[in-house]
Design a protein around this nucleic acid. Structure first.
Lengths: 250, 250
DNA sequence: AAAATATTGATTTATTTTGATAAAAACAGT
DNA sequence: ACTGTTTTTATCAAAATAAATCAATATTTT
Protein backbone atom coordinates (compact mmCIF):
# COMPACT_ATOMS: atom_id res chain seq x y z
CA UNK A 1 0.00 0.00 0.00
CA UNK A 2 1.30 3.39 -0.96
CA UNK A 3 1.95 6.36 1.20
CA UNK A 4 -0.68 8.39 -0.50
CA UNK A 5 -3.30 5.73 -0.15
CA UNK A 6 -2.43 5.22 3.47
CA UNK A 7 -2.80 8.86 4.36
CA UNK A 8 -6.26 8.89 2.96
CA UNK A 9 -7.12 5.72 4.81
CA UNK A 10 -5.84 7.17 8.04
CA UNK A 11 -8.05 10.22 7.71
CA UNK A 12 -10.94 8.03 6.83
CA UNK A 13 -10.29 5.91 9.83
CA UNK A 14 -10.21 8.89 12.12
CA UNK A 15 -13.43 10.15 10.68
CA UNK A 16 -15.38 6.95 11.05
CA UNK A 17 -13.97 5.98 14.43
CA UNK A 18 -14.25 8.38 17.30
CA UNK A 19 -11.55 10.75 16.08
CA UNK A 20 -8.64 8.83 17.52
CA UNK A 21 -6.54 5.85 16.46
CA UNK A 22 -3.51 4.11 17.86
CA UNK A 23 -0.42 3.46 15.82
CA UNK A 24 -0.89 -0.24 16.45
CA UNK A 25 -4.38 -0.31 15.03
CA UNK A 26 -3.23 1.46 11.92
CA UNK A 27 -0.37 -0.99 11.48
CA UNK A 28 -2.76 -3.90 11.59
CA UNK A 29 -5.46 -2.38 9.46
CA UNK A 30 -3.13 -1.06 6.81
CA UNK A 31 -0.69 -3.97 6.89
CA UNK A 32 2.37 -1.87 7.33
CA UNK A 33 5.14 -1.13 9.78
CA UNK A 34 5.15 1.29 12.66
CA UNK A 35 7.80 3.33 10.97
CA UNK A 36 5.66 4.01 7.97
CA UNK A 37 2.61 4.82 10.02
CA UNK A 38 4.61 7.22 12.14
CA UNK A 39 5.99 8.92 9.07
CA UNK A 40 2.50 9.25 7.65
CA UNK A 41 1.25 10.69 10.89
CA UNK A 42 3.96 13.31 11.07
CA UNK A 43 3.22 14.24 7.47
CA UNK A 44 -0.47 14.58 8.18
CA UNK A 45 0.32 16.56 11.28
CA UNK A 46 2.40 19.00 9.28
CA UNK A 47 -0.48 19.46 6.92
CA UNK A 48 -2.49 20.41 9.97
CA UNK A 49 -5.03 17.65 9.58
CA UNK A 50 -4.24 15.58 12.63
CA UNK A 51 -2.49 15.92 15.93
CA UNK A 52 -0.08 13.26 17.09
CA UNK A 53 -0.53 12.07 20.63
CA UNK A 54 1.34 9.53 22.66
CA UNK A 55 0.28 6.19 21.24
CA UNK A 56 -1.64 7.44 18.25
CA UNK A 57 -3.21 10.48 16.67
CA UNK A 58 -6.42 12.48 16.63
CA UNK A 59 -8.15 14.75 14.18
CA UNK A 60 -7.52 18.43 14.85
CA UNK A 61 -10.42 20.12 16.50
CA UNK A 62 -10.14 23.47 14.81
CA UNK A 63 -11.69 22.16 11.65
CA UNK A 64 -14.90 21.21 13.25
CA UNK A 65 -16.54 20.44 9.97
CA UNK A 66 -14.14 17.64 9.40
CA UNK A 67 -14.69 16.33 12.86
CA UNK A 68 -18.19 17.43 13.62
CA UNK A 69 -20.00 14.19 13.38
CA UNK A 70 -17.47 12.38 15.45
CA UNK A 71 -18.52 14.28 18.50
CA UNK A 72 -21.91 12.76 18.24
CA UNK A 73 -22.32 9.54 20.05
CA UNK A 74 -22.47 6.65 17.70
CA UNK A 75 -23.37 3.54 19.64
CA UNK A 76 -22.89 -0.05 18.63
CA UNK A 77 -20.38 0.97 16.01
CA UNK A 78 -19.26 -2.54 15.24
CA UNK A 79 -22.77 -3.89 14.88
CA UNK A 80 -23.62 -1.06 12.55
CA UNK A 81 -20.56 -1.72 10.44
CA UNK A 82 -21.54 -5.36 10.06
CA UNK A 83 -25.02 -4.31 9.03
CA UNK A 84 -23.58 -1.80 6.58
CA UNK A 85 -21.49 -4.49 4.92
CA UNK A 86 -24.52 -6.72 4.50
CA UNK A 87 -26.54 -3.83 3.14
CA UNK A 88 -23.85 -3.07 0.61
CA UNK A 89 -24.25 -6.51 -0.90
CA UNK A 90 -27.76 -5.57 -2.03
CA UNK A 91 -26.51 -2.75 -4.21
CA UNK A 92 -26.30 -2.93 -7.98
CA UNK A 93 -24.37 -0.72 -10.37
CA UNK A 94 -26.20 2.47 -11.14
CA UNK A 95 -28.55 2.26 -8.20
CA UNK A 96 -30.19 5.43 -6.98
CA UNK A 97 -30.50 5.16 -3.24
CA UNK A 98 -31.99 7.14 -0.40
CA UNK A 99 -29.99 7.16 2.82
CA UNK A 100 -31.85 8.40 5.86
CA UNK A 101 -30.65 10.38 8.86
CA UNK A 102 -29.64 7.35 10.92
CA UNK A 103 -26.08 6.66 11.94
CA UNK A 104 -26.37 3.17 10.48
CA UNK A 105 -26.92 4.77 7.10
CA UNK A 106 -23.78 6.75 7.73
CA UNK A 107 -21.78 3.57 8.03
CA UNK A 108 -23.31 2.30 4.84
CA UNK A 109 -22.26 5.52 3.16
CA UNK A 110 -18.78 4.81 4.36
CA UNK A 111 -18.84 1.36 2.79
CA UNK A 112 -19.87 2.62 -0.62
CA UNK A 113 -17.50 5.54 -0.91
CA UNK A 114 -15.65 4.07 -3.85
CA UNK A 115 -18.65 2.73 -5.79
CA UNK A 116 -18.82 5.62 -8.14
CA UNK A 117 -21.76 4.32 -10.16
CA UNK A 118 -24.18 5.01 -7.35
CA UNK A 119 -26.30 8.08 -6.78
CA UNK A 120 -26.99 8.92 -3.17
CA UNK A 121 -29.79 11.19 -2.01
CA UNK A 122 -29.82 12.03 1.67
CA UNK A 123 -30.91 14.47 4.34
CA UNK A 124 -28.10 13.32 6.62
CA UNK A 125 -25.46 16.00 6.83
CA UNK A 126 -22.87 13.61 8.17
CA UNK A 127 -23.25 11.53 5.05
CA UNK A 128 -23.11 14.66 2.97
CA UNK A 129 -19.82 15.68 4.56
CA UNK A 130 -18.41 12.20 4.26
CA UNK A 131 -19.32 11.76 0.62
CA UNK A 132 -17.96 15.15 -0.29
CA UNK A 133 -14.67 13.27 -0.19
CA UNK A 134 -15.87 10.68 -2.65
CA UNK A 135 -16.50 10.58 -6.36
CA UNK A 136 -20.12 9.58 -5.95
CA UNK A 137 -22.98 11.57 -7.33
CA UNK A 138 -24.57 13.05 -4.24
CA UNK A 139 -27.79 14.99 -3.88
CA UNK A 140 -28.76 16.63 -0.65
CA UNK A 141 -32.22 17.52 0.47
CA UNK A 142 -32.75 21.04 1.64
CA UNK A 143 -34.50 21.89 4.84
CA UNK A 144 -34.17 23.03 8.40
CA UNK A 145 -31.32 21.64 10.45
CA UNK A 146 -33.06 19.51 13.04
CA UNK A 147 -32.90 21.20 16.38
CA UNK A 148 -32.86 17.91 18.25
CA UNK A 149 -30.14 15.87 16.67
CA UNK A 150 -28.48 18.59 14.63
CA UNK A 151 -27.47 15.99 12.10
CA UNK A 152 -30.22 16.05 9.51
CA UNK A 153 -32.53 18.24 7.50
CA UNK A 154 -36.26 18.24 8.06
CA UNK A 155 -39.40 20.05 7.02
CA UNK A 156 -41.13 20.71 3.74
CA UNK A 157 -37.93 21.55 1.90
CA UNK A 158 -36.49 18.23 2.98
CA UNK A 159 -39.55 16.39 1.71
CA UNK A 160 -39.55 17.90 -1.73
CA UNK A 161 -36.37 16.23 -2.95
CA UNK A 162 -37.60 12.79 -2.03
CA UNK A 163 -40.98 13.50 -3.53
CA UNK A 164 -39.40 14.34 -6.85
CA UNK A 165 -36.96 11.47 -7.17
CA UNK A 166 -37.80 7.81 -7.45
CA UNK A 167 -35.13 5.63 -5.86
CA UNK A 168 -34.33 1.99 -6.39
CA UNK A 169 -33.70 1.47 -2.71
CA UNK A 170 -34.07 3.25 0.56
CA UNK A 171 -31.87 2.28 3.50
CA UNK A 172 -33.21 3.42 6.83
CA UNK A 173 -33.10 2.85 10.52
CA UNK A 174 -35.06 4.05 13.53
CA UNK A 175 -34.93 3.78 17.29
CA UNK A 176 -37.32 0.90 17.74
CA UNK A 177 -38.79 -2.27 16.32
CA UNK A 178 -41.39 -3.93 18.54
CA UNK A 179 -42.23 -7.65 18.61
CA UNK A 180 -45.35 -7.08 16.55
CA UNK A 181 -43.37 -5.56 13.73
CA UNK A 182 -44.04 -1.88 14.34
CA UNK A 183 -41.14 0.37 13.44
CA UNK A 184 -41.11 3.60 15.42
CA UNK A 185 -38.94 6.58 16.26
CA UNK A 186 -38.66 9.49 18.67
CA UNK A 187 -39.08 12.66 16.65
CA UNK A 188 -42.10 13.41 14.58
CA UNK A 189 -40.38 15.51 11.96
CA UNK A 190 -37.83 12.82 11.25
CA UNK A 191 -40.50 10.19 10.89
CA UNK A 192 -42.28 12.41 8.39
CA UNK A 193 -39.33 12.94 6.11
CA UNK A 194 -38.39 9.29 6.30
CA UNK A 195 -41.91 8.47 5.26
CA UNK A 196 -41.47 10.40 2.06
CA UNK A 197 -38.34 8.40 1.34
CA UNK A 198 -40.19 5.15 1.93
CA UNK A 199 -43.05 6.17 -0.34
CA UNK A 200 -40.76 6.99 -3.21
CA UNK A 201 -38.50 3.99 -3.23
CA UNK A 202 -39.03 0.63 -4.85
CA UNK A 203 -37.22 -1.43 -2.24
CA UNK A 204 -37.27 -0.64 1.45
CA UNK A 205 -34.37 -1.93 3.49
CA UNK A 206 -34.52 -1.61 7.25
CA UNK A 207 -31.18 -1.58 9.08
CA UNK A 208 -31.76 -2.77 12.60
CA UNK A 209 -29.11 -3.58 15.15
CA UNK A 210 -30.54 -6.07 17.57
CA UNK A 211 -30.52 -3.62 20.44
CA UNK A 212 -33.55 -1.92 18.91
CA UNK A 213 -35.42 -5.18 18.89
CA UNK A 214 -38.38 -5.32 21.23
CA UNK A 215 -38.44 -1.60 21.99
CA UNK A 216 -41.06 1.04 21.28
CA UNK A 217 -40.92 4.74 20.45
CA UNK A 218 -43.71 7.33 20.35
CA UNK A 219 -44.00 7.94 16.61
CA UNK A 220 -44.90 5.12 14.29
CA UNK A 221 -42.90 4.96 11.10
CA UNK A 222 -44.25 1.88 9.36
CA UNK A 223 -44.63 -1.85 9.89
CA UNK A 224 -42.50 -4.76 8.74
CA UNK A 225 -45.04 -5.87 6.15
CA UNK A 226 -44.16 -2.76 4.16
CA UNK A 227 -40.46 -3.54 4.32
CA UNK A 228 -38.56 -5.70 1.82
CA UNK A 229 -35.37 -6.42 3.75
CA UNK A 230 -34.55 -6.50 7.42
CA UNK A 231 -30.83 -6.50 8.13
CA UNK A 232 -29.39 -7.17 11.56
CA UNK A 233 -25.91 -7.99 12.74
CA UNK A 234 -26.93 -11.41 14.06
CA UNK A 235 -29.83 -13.86 13.78
CA UNK A 236 -32.13 -12.40 16.40
CA UNK A 237 -34.56 -11.16 13.77
CA UNK A 238 -35.62 -14.59 12.55
CA UNK A 239 -38.51 -14.39 14.97
CA UNK A 240 -40.22 -12.23 12.38
CA UNK A 241 -40.00 -14.76 9.57
CA UNK A 242 -43.28 -16.43 10.55
CA UNK A 243 -45.42 -13.34 10.92
CA UNK A 244 -43.93 -11.66 7.86
CA UNK A 245 -43.23 -14.38 5.27
CA UNK A 246 -42.56 -11.85 2.51
CA UNK A 247 -39.86 -10.14 4.52
CA UNK A 248 -36.30 -11.06 3.64
CA UNK A 249 -34.04 -11.26 6.66
CA UNK A 250 -30.29 -10.94 6.40
CA UNK B 1 -2.13 2.06 -28.11
CA UNK B 2 -1.58 5.71 -28.84
CA UNK B 3 -0.45 8.38 -26.53
CA UNK B 4 -3.61 10.46 -26.34
CA UNK B 5 -5.67 7.36 -26.22
CA UNK B 6 -3.70 6.34 -23.18
CA UNK B 7 -4.03 9.73 -21.59
CA UNK B 8 -7.75 9.57 -21.98
CA UNK B 9 -7.80 6.14 -20.48
CA UNK B 10 -5.74 7.27 -17.54
CA UNK B 11 -8.09 10.11 -16.75
CA UNK B 12 -11.01 7.79 -17.17
CA UNK B 13 -9.41 5.37 -14.82
CA UNK B 14 -8.84 8.02 -12.20
CA UNK B 15 -12.39 9.18 -12.44
CA UNK B 16 -14.00 5.79 -12.14
CA UNK B 17 -11.65 4.54 -9.47
CA UNK B 18 -10.94 6.31 -6.25
CA UNK B 19 -9.14 9.24 -7.83
CA UNK B 20 -5.84 7.45 -7.55
CA UNK B 21 -3.94 4.83 -9.56
CA UNK B 22 -0.54 3.25 -9.35
CA UNK B 23 1.88 3.16 -12.25
CA UNK B 24 1.84 -0.61 -12.04
CA UNK B 25 -1.90 -0.85 -12.45
CA UNK B 26 -1.78 1.39 -15.47
CA UNK B 27 0.96 -0.70 -17.04
CA UNK B 28 -1.15 -3.82 -16.70
CA UNK B 29 -4.42 -2.31 -17.78
CA UNK B 30 -3.01 -0.43 -20.74
CA UNK B 31 -0.48 -3.09 -21.79
CA UNK B 32 2.43 -0.74 -21.91
CA UNK B 33 5.75 -0.04 -20.25
CA UNK B 34 6.44 1.93 -17.14
CA UNK B 35 8.38 4.46 -19.16
CA UNK B 36 5.41 5.33 -21.29
CA UNK B 37 3.05 5.55 -18.38
CA UNK B 38 5.43 7.84 -16.55
CA UNK B 39 5.77 10.05 -19.57
CA UNK B 40 2.00 10.23 -19.88
CA UNK B 41 1.68 11.10 -16.25
CA UNK B 42 4.20 13.92 -16.43
CA UNK B 43 2.38 15.25 -19.47
CA UNK B 44 -0.96 15.12 -17.71
CA UNK B 45 0.57 16.73 -14.69
CA UNK B 46 1.85 19.63 -16.76
CA UNK B 47 -1.61 20.09 -18.13
CA UNK B 48 -2.71 20.40 -14.53
CA UNK B 49 -5.12 17.51 -14.71
CA UNK B 50 -3.40 15.16 -12.35
CA UNK B 51 -0.83 15.22 -9.63
CA UNK B 52 1.98 12.69 -9.63
CA UNK B 53 2.72 10.99 -6.38
CA UNK B 54 5.26 8.40 -5.46
CA UNK B 55 3.99 5.19 -6.99
CA UNK B 56 1.19 6.66 -9.03
CA UNK B 57 -0.95 9.70 -9.59
CA UNK B 58 -4.15 11.31 -8.41
CA UNK B 59 -6.74 13.59 -9.89
CA UNK B 60 -6.07 17.20 -9.15
CA UNK B 61 -9.66 18.16 -8.52
CA UNK B 62 -9.54 15.38 -6.15
CA UNK B 63 -11.81 16.14 -3.41
CA UNK B 64 -11.03 12.60 -2.51
CA UNK B 65 -8.87 13.74 0.31
CA UNK B 66 -9.73 16.22 2.95
CA UNK B 67 -6.47 17.92 2.25
CA UNK B 68 -7.82 19.85 -0.66
CA UNK B 69 -10.45 21.51 1.44
CA UNK B 70 -8.05 22.29 4.22
CA UNK B 71 -5.58 23.76 1.79
CA UNK B 72 -8.25 25.94 0.28
CA UNK B 73 -9.51 27.12 3.60
CA UNK B 74 -6.07 27.68 4.92
CA UNK B 75 -5.24 30.01 2.11
CA UNK B 76 -5.10 33.60 3.38
CA UNK B 77 -6.61 32.36 6.56
CA UNK B 78 -5.74 35.45 8.57
CA UNK B 79 -7.09 37.84 5.99
CA UNK B 80 -10.32 35.92 5.86
CA UNK B 81 -10.65 35.98 9.62
CA UNK B 82 -10.18 39.73 9.70
CA UNK B 83 -12.81 40.12 7.01
CA UNK B 84 -15.15 37.82 8.91
CA UNK B 85 -14.82 39.92 12.05
CA UNK B 86 -15.64 43.10 10.15
CA UNK B 87 -18.59 41.43 8.49
CA UNK B 88 -19.91 40.29 11.83
CA UNK B 89 -20.17 43.90 12.97
CA UNK B 90 -22.85 44.49 10.35
CA UNK B 91 -25.18 41.94 11.86
CA UNK B 92 -28.23 42.84 13.92
CA UNK B 93 -30.24 40.64 16.25
CA UNK B 94 -32.73 38.53 14.40
CA UNK B 95 -31.10 38.91 11.02
CA UNK B 96 -31.81 36.33 8.37
CA UNK B 97 -28.67 35.92 6.33
CA UNK B 98 -27.52 34.02 3.27
CA UNK B 99 -23.99 32.64 3.41
CA UNK B 100 -22.57 31.52 0.10
CA UNK B 101 -20.23 28.66 -0.76
CA UNK B 102 -17.00 30.62 -0.28
CA UNK B 103 -14.46 29.80 2.37
CA UNK B 104 -14.62 33.38 3.58
CA UNK B 105 -18.27 32.82 4.42
CA UNK B 106 -17.14 29.77 6.33
CA UNK B 107 -15.01 31.94 8.55
CA UNK B 108 -17.91 34.31 9.07
CA UNK B 109 -20.03 31.35 10.10
CA UNK B 110 -17.34 30.51 12.57
CA UNK B 111 -17.55 34.01 14.06
CA UNK B 112 -21.28 33.97 14.57
CA UNK B 113 -21.60 30.52 16.08
CA UNK B 114 -22.82 31.87 19.40
CA UNK B 115 -25.23 34.53 18.11
CA UNK B 116 -28.32 32.46 18.53
CA UNK B 117 -30.74 35.09 17.29
CA UNK B 118 -29.57 34.71 13.72
CA UNK B 119 -30.99 32.53 11.00
CA UNK B 120 -28.48 31.24 8.46
CA UNK B 121 -29.39 29.90 5.05
CA UNK B 122 -26.58 28.38 3.05
CA UNK B 123 -25.59 25.97 0.31
CA UNK B 124 -22.14 25.53 1.83
CA UNK B 125 -21.89 22.11 3.37
CA UNK B 126 -18.88 23.07 5.41
CA UNK B 127 -20.90 25.80 7.04
CA UNK B 128 -23.75 23.37 7.52
CA UNK B 129 -21.46 20.95 9.31
CA UNK B 130 -19.93 23.68 11.37
CA UNK B 131 -23.22 25.19 12.48
CA UNK B 132 -24.64 21.82 13.36
CA UNK B 133 -22.58 22.34 16.49
CA UNK B 134 -24.20 25.70 17.23
CA UNK B 135 -27.58 26.77 18.51
CA UNK B 136 -28.34 28.87 15.45
CA UNK B 137 -31.33 28.33 13.30
CA UNK B 138 -29.86 26.86 10.13
CA UNK B 139 -31.51 26.12 6.84
CA UNK B 140 -29.73 24.29 4.09
CA UNK B 141 -30.45 24.45 0.42
CA UNK B 142 -30.90 21.18 -1.35
CA UNK B 143 -29.18 20.34 -4.57
CA UNK B 144 -26.41 18.44 -6.24
CA UNK B 145 -23.06 18.26 -4.53
CA UNK B 146 -20.79 20.27 -6.82
CA UNK B 147 -18.47 17.97 -8.67
CA UNK B 148 -15.73 20.56 -8.82
CA UNK B 149 -15.28 21.83 -5.32
CA UNK B 150 -17.31 19.21 -3.50
CA UNK B 151 -18.16 21.76 -0.87
CA UNK B 152 -21.47 23.18 -1.96
CA UNK B 153 -24.86 22.42 -3.41
CA UNK B 154 -25.88 23.60 -6.85
CA UNK B 155 -28.66 23.27 -9.38
CA UNK B 156 -32.37 23.95 -9.38
CA UNK B 157 -32.95 22.48 -5.95
CA UNK B 158 -30.30 24.77 -4.56
CA UNK B 159 -31.94 27.78 -6.13
CA UNK B 160 -35.40 27.14 -4.78
CA UNK B 161 -34.58 27.78 -1.14
CA UNK B 162 -33.10 31.17 -1.89
CA UNK B 163 -36.00 32.02 -4.15
CA UNK B 164 -38.47 31.39 -1.38
CA UNK B 165 -36.76 33.21 1.45
CA UNK B 166 -36.10 36.90 1.65
CA UNK B 167 -32.91 37.64 3.60
CA UNK B 168 -31.78 40.79 5.32
CA UNK B 169 -28.22 40.29 4.18
CA UNK B 170 -26.18 38.10 1.87
CA UNK B 171 -22.50 37.62 2.52
CA UNK B 172 -20.60 36.34 -0.47
CA UNK B 173 -17.21 36.05 -2.06
CA UNK B 174 -15.84 35.01 -5.43
CA UNK B 175 -12.50 34.44 -7.10
CA UNK B 176 -12.10 37.83 -8.72
CA UNK B 177 -12.80 41.52 -8.62
CA UNK B 178 -11.41 43.49 -11.53
CA UNK B 179 -10.43 47.17 -11.51
CA UNK B 180 -13.63 48.16 -13.30
CA UNK B 181 -15.74 46.66 -10.54
CA UNK B 182 -16.75 43.41 -12.17
CA UNK B 183 -17.12 40.52 -9.75
CA UNK B 184 -16.51 37.15 -11.37
CA UNK B 185 -15.94 33.50 -10.57
CA UNK B 186 -14.78 30.24 -12.13
CA UNK B 187 -17.76 27.91 -12.20
CA UNK B 188 -20.99 28.73 -13.89
CA UNK B 189 -23.27 26.74 -11.63
CA UNK B 190 -21.92 28.43 -8.56
CA UNK B 191 -22.39 31.86 -10.06
CA UNK B 192 -25.99 30.98 -10.82
CA UNK B 193 -26.93 29.92 -7.35
CA UNK B 194 -25.14 32.89 -5.84
CA UNK B 195 -27.14 35.09 -8.14
CA UNK B 196 -30.37 33.85 -6.63
CA UNK B 197 -29.02 34.71 -3.20
CA UNK B 198 -28.15 38.21 -4.37
CA UNK B 199 -31.56 38.77 -5.89
CA UNK B 200 -33.39 37.82 -2.74
CA UNK B 201 -31.47 39.77 -0.20
CA UNK B 202 -31.88 43.35 0.86
CA UNK B 203 -28.23 44.08 1.55
CA UNK B 204 -25.38 42.59 -0.44
CA UNK B 205 -22.05 42.34 1.29
CA UNK B 206 -19.02 41.31 -0.73
CA UNK B 207 -16.16 39.74 1.21
CA UNK B 208 -12.97 40.30 -0.75
CA UNK B 209 -9.47 39.62 0.45
CA UNK B 210 -7.16 41.90 -1.42
CA UNK B 211 -5.53 39.07 -3.32
CA UNK B 212 -8.64 38.85 -5.49
CA UNK B 213 -8.29 42.49 -6.40
CA UNK B 214 -7.43 43.17 -10.01
CA UNK B 215 -8.07 39.63 -11.21
CA UNK B 216 -10.63 38.26 -13.64
CA UNK B 217 -12.54 35.00 -13.92
CA UNK B 218 -14.65 33.63 -16.77
CA UNK B 219 -18.15 33.94 -15.32
CA UNK B 220 -19.52 37.31 -14.37
CA UNK B 221 -21.37 37.42 -11.07
CA UNK B 222 -22.35 41.06 -10.71
CA UNK B 223 -20.79 44.51 -10.52
CA UNK B 224 -19.92 46.66 -7.54
CA UNK B 225 -22.76 49.09 -8.19
CA UNK B 226 -25.17 46.36 -7.14
CA UNK B 227 -23.26 45.76 -3.94
CA UNK B 228 -23.87 47.58 -0.65
CA UNK B 229 -20.72 46.74 1.27
CA UNK B 230 -17.22 45.77 0.18
CA UNK B 231 -15.14 44.32 2.99
CA UNK B 232 -11.40 43.73 2.68
CA UNK B 233 -8.72 43.06 5.23
CA UNK B 234 -6.85 46.28 4.44
CA UNK B 235 -7.42 49.60 2.65
CA UNK B 236 -6.64 48.54 -0.88
CA UNK B 237 -10.25 48.76 -1.95
CA UNK B 238 -10.55 52.51 -1.51
CA UNK B 239 -9.73 52.85 -5.19
CA UNK B 240 -13.35 51.97 -5.85
CA UNK B 241 -14.81 54.79 -3.76
CA UNK B 242 -14.74 57.28 -6.65
CA UNK B 243 -16.34 55.09 -9.29
CA UNK B 244 -18.90 53.65 -6.89
CA UNK B 245 -19.90 56.41 -4.47
CA UNK B 246 -22.85 54.43 -3.07
CA UNK B 247 -20.60 51.53 -2.12
CA UNK B 248 -19.60 51.33 1.52
CA UNK B 249 -16.05 50.11 1.98
CA UNK B 250 -14.86 48.56 5.23
C1' DA C 1 10.74 6.80 -50.74
C1' DA C 2 13.83 9.28 -47.96
C1' DA C 3 14.54 12.33 -44.27
C1' DA C 4 13.07 14.33 -40.14
C1' DT C 5 10.65 13.85 -36.01
C1' DA C 6 8.37 11.55 -32.26
C1' DT C 7 7.42 7.59 -29.50
C1' DT C 8 8.62 3.44 -27.38
C1' DG C 9 10.73 0.07 -24.11
C1' DA C 10 15.07 -1.50 -22.10
C1' DT C 11 18.86 -0.20 -19.32
C1' DT C 12 21.30 2.32 -16.12
C1' DT C 13 21.51 5.75 -12.50
C1' DA C 14 19.37 8.57 -8.93
C1' DT C 15 15.93 9.26 -5.53
C1' DT C 16 12.41 8.02 -2.32
C1' DT C 17 10.30 4.94 0.69
C1' DT C 18 10.40 1.19 3.71
C1' DG C 19 11.08 -1.80 7.79
C1' DA C 20 14.33 -3.04 11.27
C1' DT C 21 17.09 -1.77 15.04
C1' DA C 22 18.89 0.66 18.91
C1' DA C 23 18.83 4.52 21.88
C1' DA C 24 16.02 8.15 23.99
C1' DA C 25 11.77 9.72 25.90
C1' DA C 26 7.21 9.20 27.93
C1' DC C 27 4.24 6.81 30.75
C1' DA C 28 2.27 3.80 34.74
C1' DG C 29 2.58 1.67 39.02
C1' DT C 30 4.82 1.34 43.28
C1' DA D 1 12.04 8.98 42.67
C1' DC D 2 12.76 4.29 40.82
C1' DT D 3 11.68 0.49 37.68
C1' DG D 4 9.71 -1.86 33.96
C1' DT D 5 7.02 -1.18 29.94
C1' DT D 6 5.56 1.16 26.05
C1' DT D 7 6.09 4.57 22.66
C1' DT D 8 8.97 7.76 20.06
C1' DT D 9 12.96 9.27 17.53
C1' DA D 10 17.00 8.65 14.71
C1' DT D 11 19.63 6.02 11.70
C1' DC D 12 20.69 2.85 8.00
C1' DA D 13 20.65 -0.72 4.55
C1' DA D 14 17.41 -2.88 1.45
C1' DA D 15 13.64 -2.42 -1.62
C1' DA D 16 10.75 0.18 -4.59
C1' DT D 17 10.02 3.85 -7.58
C1' DA D 18 11.46 7.78 -10.59
C1' DA D 19 14.42 10.02 -13.88
C1' DA D 20 17.78 10.00 -17.54
C1' DT D 21 19.81 7.92 -21.43
C1' DC D 22 19.74 5.60 -25.75
C1' DA D 23 18.94 2.48 -29.55
C1' DA D 24 15.01 0.66 -32.05
C1' DT D 25 10.66 1.45 -33.97
C1' DA D 26 6.86 4.09 -35.59
C1' DT D 27 4.90 8.31 -37.53
C1' DT D 28 4.90 12.45 -40.10
C1' DT D 29 6.80 15.59 -43.39
C1' DT D 30 8.98 16.62 -47.48
Amino acid sequence: MLKNEREREIINFLKTEDGFVTVKTLCEKLYTSESSIRRDLTALEQKGIIKKTYGGAELVKSFSNVVSFIKRSHHNINEKKIIAKKAKSLLRDGDIIFLDQSSTSFYLANEIMSDSTLTVITNNIEILSLLSNSALRVISSGGILSSENRNCLIGADAHSIFENIRAHKVFFSTKSLSEDGIISDCTREEVLVRNVMLQNSEQKIFLCDSEKLGTKSPYKQTTLNHVDFLITENDNAVIFSESFPALQIM
